[in-house]
Structure formats: C-alpha cells, structure tokens
Design a protein around this nucleic acid. Structure first.
Length: 885
RNA sequence: GGGCGGUUAGCUCAGUUGGUAGAGCGCUGCCCUUACAAGGCAGAUGCCACAAGUUCAAGUCUUGUACCGCCCACCA
C-alpha cells in the first residue's frame, strides 16, 4: 500500500505549490523550433485597472482547457498573456485617486500625470495577472505583453502611419459623441443607449414678416439657440405652404429657413422639426445635405457658448430652464408631454453623451469592412454560427471609426503640425524639422488613440510585429480566439480588419464566442446590483478546480450561464470524489508501479468493461474539444468518474484485490484507468489531477501538465463484454431494488436463485459469482435454468433471466404483490406501444430494416419477461393460498 | 422597425445525423458496506409552450401563435 495522499484534499496548498512550479519551470514557455503543429491563443487582454470577474474566469478557463488539451495532443502551444492599458478607464481611476488629494490632472500637467499612471500601474496593475495565475492559466509569462509597452507602441505607430498614407486614416471636423465628464470623444459603439423618461415640448416659431407660425416638438430646448432650419416632410399638406419661407428662432430672433426632407416622420410630434446641425447626429446630416449654417452653442464642458446669446455661460441644464421660461412668457410654449426616449450614455462613466462637432481622427472602416466581412466563413469559422448574420449586419451599416480621444493616457497620435506653415506631418519617428518650411517649431497632436486601436493589432503585435520574429512566423495566424460576444464589434471585427490589412491573413482561424455569466435569476452581474460572484473568493472557498469545472460544465454553446454559488459548491463534491477514488487506488497499489500486462488480453469482465468504456471516453472527449462542446467534455468526465469508475468499477475490483490470480492484472488496469482519466480531466481541473499524478507509484516528481493524451487502444474496445457487464449490473440492481422496495435491510444477506434464459447467461453468472454475491450482498446464489425456487419469493426478470429472492418469515407479502403488479404494468404498456408500431403496416415496410428488427427483438424480450413474471406471480399466489412451497 | 435566442422533471439545464425522454441540485425511503456521509443504494416526478404541416416515426425538420430574454437601428 502506498497511500501518500492526505485524507482530505486541501486546494489552497496544492494550488500554490503547482502555480509556483509551473512558473519556475517555465512549463508553458514553448520553443518556436519545437515539433508539433503550432497552436496559439492570445488572451483577451483584461484592463490593467481590472479585477478578475466571473466573465474572465469563464473565458480563461475555456482557453486554458483548450491549451492544456492541445498540448496533450502534441501541438506546439503558445498562450500569450497580457493586459490592456484601457485609456479612459485607467485615466478615470487615477484621476479619482488624485481627487482624494484634492488635485486634478491639469494641476500635474500631462507629463507628470502620465508618470503617475505608470506608477499606479506598477503598483496595482499586477493584481489581475496574479489572479490569472491563480486560476491555473497555462500562459507563457516570459511573453507577457502590455498594449502600451515599447514594442506594441511601435506597432501602433507603424499601423497609423501606413493607414494614413493609404488614405485609410484621415482627420476632419465631424459630429461625434462627446462625454463631458471624461472630456473626450467616444466611438459609436462606446455609447450605450437606455430609455429615459423626459418631456416633449411643443414650441411655436413665428414666421418672419408674417402672422403665421409653425409649431415644432423638441426634447432638448437648450439647443434652440443653435437652430439653423426647420424641417417638414415635403408631402405634408399642413406645411407645404410654408416651405421656403423664413422662421425666427424664439427669443434670439435669428432668421432660419423652412426646408423639406423625407427624413421627417409626419406622425411624430407636430410633424415639424427644428434642425440643430451641431448638436444632433441626424441634424448634422440634414445640415450637410441642405447646406445649412452650423452654429455650435454648447461647449465641450456642457456650458452655453457666446453664440447662445443671452444664455451664454449657463450650463445646458440652466439654459433649458431659462429658455423655456422665456418662451412660456411669450406665450409660445404650446404643450408639454411626457416622453420616454432613449438617451446615450458613456460606457465608462455613464454620463449622458452629447453630440458634439469637433476635429477628430477617423479610420475608414467603411473601406476595410468588405474584406473583413468576406473572411467569414471563408477563412474564419465563427462559432456559434448564429452570430454570422449579426456580424454581417454590423459591417454593412458601419460608419467610420472615430479613433482620437481627448485624454492623456494612451498612444499619442503620431501627427505634428508646423506652427509656422501649418503643414501636417504624420511619421513613425518624431520629426524635428518641418519638411515644408524647415521650421523646428512643431506641435504634436494632443490626442491619444482609442484603446481598441492597439487591441486591434493584438494577435500580431504580441508576436513581435513589425519585426519579423520567429514567433510571428511560427504562430500567426493564431488558432482560435475565445471571447465574449459583447466585444464582437469592439474587438473581434477590428482585429480581422487589421490582420487582413497588415498581415495579409486572418488573425485566427476560429472565433468561439462564449456566453455571458449571469446570476441565478438570469440578471447581468454588476457591482451595483450586488449580485456578483467573485471568482477569487470562490477559488479560496471551494478551490480553483471546483470553479473551473462548474464553468466548463455550464458552457453550452450559444447559451448564457446562470451561475450561483451552490453550483460551485456542488461540483466541489466532484473534486472530492476524484480525490477519494485516487486514495482508494493508491491504497490498493504497491510502492512500485504495477507491472504492465497486455491490456487487450486482460481477464475479468470488470477490467474489460472499464477499459472499453475508457476508450469511448477518450474519443468522446477529444471530439468534444474539437467541436468546442465544453459542457460535453465536463459531463463526459463526470459521468465516467462517478457513475462508472467509482460506482461500479471500484466496487467490482475490490474482490480482485483479495485474489491471488487476479490481483496483479487488476492493479495494472486500475492504475492505468486512473492515470488516463487524470490526463483527460486535467485540462478542466489542473491542480487536483496534477497533485494525484505525482503521488502515483512510478510518477513521483512528474508534472502532469507535460503528459501526452493517452494513445488509442482499439483492441480494448469490446462491445460484447460491455453488454455482458450490463446484464450483470441489471441482475445486481434487480436484487437491490427488491430489497429496497420490500424494506429488507440492504445488509441482510439473502439466498438468490437465478434462472438464466440460456446457457450463455448461465455461464456468465457462474463466472462472476463472486461479483454478484458481493455487490448484491448475498448469502449465496444458486443458478440453474430449471432450478427449484420457493414459491413465496419476490422476483424480477432481467433479459429473460429470472431473479428470485425467497421471502422467508417476517416479510411484507402484500408489498411484493404490489411491486410485481407495478413492474408488470410497466412491461405491459411498453409492450403495447411496440406492438402497435409493429402492427402498423407502413412502419414495417417503410422504416429502416434494422429499426424494425430492433423493435421486434424488443417486443420479444418484453413478452418473454412479462410471461415469466406472470408465472412467478402465479406461483406467489399459490404460496399465499397454500402455504410455503 | 430589423435580427437572434429561449420555452423539456420542483429548480438549473443537456439532448449530436428524426427511431424507446437525460443529468445535477432538490425531494422520499433505507444504509456509517474499512476511498469518499462532500458518501452509498433504491425511488417518485415530464400532454418536451401552443397549433398546423412533412414523415411509417417529431423534443429533434417546416410554418404560424403566445410569452420571456438579448442585440442593432430610430426616437425631433
């Protein structure tokens, strides 16, 4: 006996031990020259500001299980870790800490502030990395990257400059989304819309030199000073006579034209619309097509500008009040209605986003979109497939991507303006002199790039691009991208665009979009709702493997995960089960590894059966990984370990351990099955499996993470033996059921009489007498096709074999009658169903012959079992009436 | 308005190519059988949302309906 495992599994110590071993040994740092097909995954880089949340945990667990699995399969696996500088988010965090000191970033100045952010990152930016490690991720720490590190910054510059030269990056004055709190432009998809209750004000605009007037409806009266037109539908009879006339802006009295455009919805409001090109996206478009005046009245801090006349200097909220009061006092406020309308908010700080006109940089994604669209499904497999339509739709309706941000933390835009001649220089290296006028007085653009700009380069920049590195040649394109569907547009689509453009090839061959993790009620987890499950806490409480197994078991493709702590607790039992199965195994092995035997020729139905099941499991799990059916991977392992290995095989093998002739080979089978099972489970639960592995005789000091997937053993596939085993299981279960249902104590040893259906069954039963006696807990058993049995017996039939348990003395005879009746009833209805099918002429002629045959076999068996039970029942009645036997 | 998903046991969900409905948790009863009481054994519970269609055969394929959820667009 070589029990070196402690009685209880202690995840904390074990996990710490293996984490440091994997780190110190650089176990997951592959050599690009090593053999094996390349398999690379880049981490979706978490924000440096971030703490590991349950969504990361799911994402990283799935990626890690893939990496570990394909490493076992002999692929040359590289998983690159890293973090994202997260421009706005990080700047916000550091600004908050500054605010506690009573300072603003402007007080420090740009340079000092950035220094401060780096300093913050040095201190706190590693938290998320430690958490990634705590989750057991097999990343290569020697290749750790950061979106703002030196190499990636070079990549960003090169990309920017090239796109600029190709005309795919341009600068221009456009209406963009402005967050006045973050003080920066936002891309369209950084704006989150939500419905809010507001008001719709109907306001009368008087016509110039006329008594006529027109009533418009608006939700934002504060923009009235910026009105430069009124627009109606060209076919709206209420207003056709006014088209071309001139109206006056309320209070300010400025003259504006009344124009017509089909864009106007006649049903909404009054059917007349005020046009404020500088403060509304649609009005901007109207302004462009109708060549209107552009008057900006709200500045980037939300303060009314001089153009707003008497309202200048007011906040936009104050202005709204003031202008409404003025309009009302003139009798031109016609109506106020409640209105629920959607309002855009900053995805970072949730401040209401203001449409704002300013000079910004754009990537012409409209030009890059077609190739990215066509990549799927031709060069990239998108899973689940259902996202393809959504992806296409987004690319079809895409607008150019606003990439400049008016913040300090990020990649500064490599563009300089000559203060002398205003020449614009875009260059990879900082220029010192203006090529036009020779001036040295150059001013770099103040803006930085959208964080997602550097993220878009992640799959090749992390591999060393723009240098021609060995890594890049070896591992690009990467194998698969695993991420949440919420960043399909932010990130995935843009990586495809950039990969195609700069590498001439897609960045990954497969995209697997996993679900969102929700709470038990299906609500999104959020700190404010207070329904978050903290993975770090879960790891501490239940162990990392429990958490990982739970997440994997629920990761069915295309479906959200509803998670609760109870489920994690539940799967901890599974970890424990594995641990104890291993302890049992070790207790039954010697100090040395058992001597190998020819597994294809091994004796014992138990051994042949479990080896057969193991072969099937190996195939199934491998296939499930290939198809990203993570839930099936987990379920397959669960079922095998618990329902087959523990519930049956370990019980079946116990007698062998007392048997001189069986012991040696059963020890080897037991050892082999456990070992291979550990390998199979390792990708999902790396720690507990690694710990058990090194405790196995012959494997001391070994690291399971470096072991290969078990070879197939086709000789061990024995469906006939599996069927025999199932028959024996059926017999054992039948006896247990009789005992349980007739309130016979399970430990009460009965004499079992078996009347097999044929010689084959008889032989099988006799050959496995020990097994049956032990597992059914018998005094002894008697076998014979016509063997005598007491009439006062409980009975059952399994595959035609009669199971007879004598009911001597104080037993519930009525109970047995009821039990028999119930069992026969079940058989009866089943038989009726099958008979009905078989008597259906068209079924017999049209269904596949093998299906028909199966039904016939089934009918025959049901009929046979039913007849036998009927006979047994008759005997039982006799016994009741006439006394014993 | 456009798109997508869901509806299966009390709860949470699996159900690959159509061929006898499954798991976990929970529940009931019995059992401390020396790996595990975080356990073992046995049991109960389903008009697979509704309707029509295709088919010998539908949880599975087609169409429609209802309810729930998500995404995108618009919202003066």
């Amino acid at each position: 006996m070589s029990d070196t495992l402690p009685k209880g599994y202690e995840p904390r110590d074990v996990e710490a031990k293996w984490r440091s071993r994997w780190r110190d040994d650089k176990t997951f740092s592959p050599d690009p020259k090593a053999s094996g097909d390349p398999y690379c995954i880049v981490i979706p880089p978490p924000n440096v500001t971030g703490a590991l949340h349950i969504g990361h945990a799911l994402n990283l667990t799935l990626i890690d299980s893939l990496c570990r699995h394909y490493r076992q399969k002999g692929r040359n696996v590289l998983w690159i870790p890293g973090t994202d500088h997260a421009g706005i988010a990080t700047q916000n965090v550091v600004e908050k800490t500054l605010a506690k000191e009573g300072k603003r970033r402007q007080d420090l100045g740009r340079e000092k502030f950035i220094e401060r952010v780096w300093q913050w990152r040095e201190e706190y930016g590693h938290r998320i990395l430690n958490q990634i490690e705590a989750l057991g991720c097999s990343v290569d720490w020697t290749r750790l990257r950061f979106t703002l590190d030196e190499g990636l910054s070079r990549a960003v510059r090169k990309v920017f400059v090239q796109l600029y030269r190709e005309g795919l990056i341009y600068r221009g004055k456009y209406i963009i989304n402005w967050c006045s709190r973050c003080h920066t432009a936002l891309a369209d998809d950084e704006v989150e819309h939500s419905d809010e209750r507001g008001h719709l004000w109907s306001i009368r605009y008087h016509l110039q030199d006329s008594d006529e007037s027109i009533i418009i409806a608006t939700t934002r009266p504060e923009t009235i000073p910026g009105d430069t037109a009124i627009c109606v539908h060209p076919e709206d009879e209420r207003y056709t006579h006014l088209i071309g006339k001139t109206a006056l802006v309320p209070v300010l009295g400025r003259a504006i034209p009344i124009i017509a455009d089909k864009y106007v919805d006649r049903e909404f409001g009054t059917g007349a619309l005020k046009v404020t090109p500088c403060h509304d996206h649609n009005d901007w478009a109207l302004g462009k097509t109708h060549n209107l005046e552009f008057i900006q009245v709200i500045d980037e801090d939300g303060i009314m500008k001089a153009e707003a006349g008497k309202y200048a200097g007011l906040s936009k909220q104050e202005c709204r009040k003031a202008i409404l009061a003025d309009i009302e006092s003139r009798g031109d406020l016609v109506r106020i209605e409640d209105l629920t309308h959607s309002v855009g908010h900053c995805y970072r700080c949730h401040t209401v986003v203001e449409p704002h006109v300013s000079e910004q940089w754009f990537v012409a994604t409209t030009k890059l979109a077609p190739r990215a669209k066509e990549a799927i499904p031709n060069r990239i497999t998108l899973l689940p497939e259902t996202w393809t339509k959504t992806y296409y739709h987004w690319l079809d309706t895409i607008r150019d991507w606003c990439i400049s941000r008016q913040i300090w933390w990020g990649h500064r835009i490599p563009a300089w303006t000559c203060t002398q001649c205003h020449h614009l220089i875009v260059a990879e290296e900082d220029p010192t002199v203006c090529p036009e006028c020779g001036s040295h007085d150059l001013h770099q653009d103040e803006d930085v790039l959208d964080t997602w700009f550097s993220s878009a380069l992640w799959p090749f920049s992390t591999l060393g691009w723009p240098d021609k590195t060995e890594d890049l040649a070896r591992w690009y394109p990467t194998a698969v991208l695993v991420t949440g569907f919420d960043i399909l547009f932010f990130w995935v689509a843009r990586m495809i665009m950039m990969g195609e453009h700069f590498m001439g090839n897609v960045p990954f061959k497969t995209v697997y979009l996993h679900a969102l993790v929700r709470d038990a009620q299906g609500k999104k987890m959020s700190k404010s709702t207070g329904n978050v499950i903290d993975p770090v806490k879960m790891i501490e409480t239940y162990g990392c493997d429990s958490l990982r197994f739970t997440l994997t078991a629920f990761a069915a493709m295309g479906r959200d995960i509803k998670l609760s702590e109870e489920r994690i607790e539940g799967y901890r039992h599974f970890v424990n089960k594995l641990w104890n199965a291993a302890r049992f195994t070790l207790m039954n092995l010697e100090d040395e590894a058992p001597k190998a035997v020819d597994l294809a020729a091994v004796e014992g139905l138990n051994n042949r059966w479990i080896l057969h099941r193991l072969e099937l499991l190996k195939r199934d799990m491998d296939q499930a990984f290939e198809e990203y059916r993570f839930n099936d991977v987990a379920q397959g392992g669960y079922k095998f370990l618990w329902s087959e290995f523990c519930d049956w095989y370990l019980e079946l093998v116990k007698p062998d351990m007392q048997s001189a002739e069986r012991k040696a080979q059963s020890q080897y089978v037991l050892y082999t099955v456990l070992k291979e099972l550990l390998i199979l489970l390792h990708p999902i639960m790396p720690f507990v499996t690694a710990e058990i592995w090194q405790a196995l005789p012959g494997h001391a000091g070994e690291d399971l993470a470096t072991m290969r997937y078990p070879e197939e053993r086709p000789d061990c596939l024995r469906p006939e033996d599996a069927a025999r085993m199932e028959f024996l299981q059926g017999v054992i279960v039948a006896v247990r059921t009789i005992k349980a249902e007739l309130d016979i104590n399970p430990s009460h040893k009965v004499v079992l009489t078996l009347r097999p259906a044929d010689a084959g069954q008889q032989e099988l039963l006799l050959a496995n007498e020990g097994t049956i006696v032990t597992l059914a807990r018998l005094e002894r058993m008697e076998v014979g096709i016509d063997i005598h049995a007491p009439k006062a017996s409980a009975s059952s039939v399994v595959q035609g074999c009669q199971i007879i348990v004598p009911l001597k003395g104080n037993v519930d005879l009525q109970g047995e009658l009821a039990r028999l009746a119930k069992e026969m009833g079940k058989l009866q209805t089943a038989l009726e169903v099958v008979d009905k099918k078989l008597s259906n002429e068209s079924f017999v002629t049209r269904a596949k012959p093998e299906i028909v045959q199966r039904e016939r076999d089934r009918a025959a068996e049901l009929k046979d079992n039913l007849e036998k039970l009927t006979t047994l029942q008759a005997r039982f009645h006799e016994a009741l009436e006439n006394g014993e036997d």
